[in-house]
Design a protein around this nucleic acid. Sequence first.
DNA 1: CTCCTGATGTCAGTTAGTGACATGAGCGGT
DNA 2: ACCGCTCATGTCACTAACTGACATCAGGAG
Lengths: 193, 193
Amino acid sequence: MELFVERGYVQTTVEEIAARAGLTERTFFRYFEDKREVLFSGSKGLEKSIVEGIASAPKGASPFDAVAAAFEAAGAELQERRDLQYVRARWALVTQHAEIRERELIKLASLAVAVRAALHARGVDEPAASLTAEAGIAVFKIGFERWLEERKPRDFADHIRAAVVALRGVTVGGDEKKKKARSEKKDKKDKKE
Amino acid sequence: MELFVERGYVQTTVEEIAARAGLTERTFFRYFEDKREVLFSGSKGLEKSIVEGIASAPKGASPFDAVAAAFEAAGAELQERRDLQYVRARWALVTQHAEIRERELIKLASLAVAVRAALHARGVDEPAASLTAEAGIAVFKIGFERWLEERKPRDFADHIRAAVVALRGVTVGGDEKKKKARSEKKDKKDKKE
DNA sequence: CTCCTGATGTCAGTTAGTGACATGAGCGGT
DNA sequence: ACCGCTCATGTCACTAACTGACATCAGGAG
């Protein structure tokens, strides 16, 4: 990350990274599949913590609530463990380089698969499991972005909860009850948070 | 695609692709940003058709309904224009090669951005626009996968509608009304489709 | 002390991707 | 008919990400 900040991602060669770490290029590639992967060392742990969060949600909780709760907890954990400056620097790389954004997206996709499996383990069937997983990821993504957008990011969990509420507002209003449901519901529910 | 099927994606070099097309490697890279991009020539058109679909949805429609309708239409269009065999071969590449899946994901992300913008143009504000876009993409992804899973894929739009219904089922049940809402609603609504 | 194993280094090779410059076909203007 | 311009393509040389094969070397078990 030092090198990426100093000289930019593209300008930094793997050889330089390896040298800075006191290794050879070859050894670097024994630890990381490719150059990008060096930015994703934590993703396995995050996934684990989220899966555990889902597994340990109360029996009565709806699948979606279980996932949302797990994301809240994981967000809080990340908040404690990682330096905000590092998170910001990393996020800048993700937004600026399509190459890295691709990797970020595939990590999220792999997270979605893990979440789906965790839901299957709770007895949720398809296609609800897949859709809950995808919806959960969407909430996480948007919650994360809005959290980082704050000048001095505060509670991650707040943003997750806000995104959950917004998503509920959005999907409400099916084929049958187009007219009624919209105006009243939105006003009342969103205030509470 | 001929070459990819014959010898596999990794084994096929850009030089070979160029030769088969009667070009040099250099010219290939003038038309495609990189090797993967050759598999995504249609994505711009798909995006356009979806954005137009959202713009032309009836005024009264909810944002989510507008997005869902646009995806239905775009799915139908794709169904007509593309050879099923090609779609399957392409999808096999996407699932088998992380490299290509990454690119697929970033195209979907770019689609999400376009959808979000189209919703802004309809007067939808944040975070509803972002969440509707993400939810729409999720529905599209899952609808597409389930459509392709059929031995003889039939109506794409059916799968989109089914995914929409499932997503509505999943996000239902907020903080206030945990107990009631679940069992009755699901049974009645899902039957209709 | 020795053998084995696992981590690291060395080296040579492939391929994706890029920049600089050459060529050549077609086209508009005179 | 000729000129000169432009745009697509080709040629060439170069960088940097990755990979496979083999060498080396340190530390631990016996």
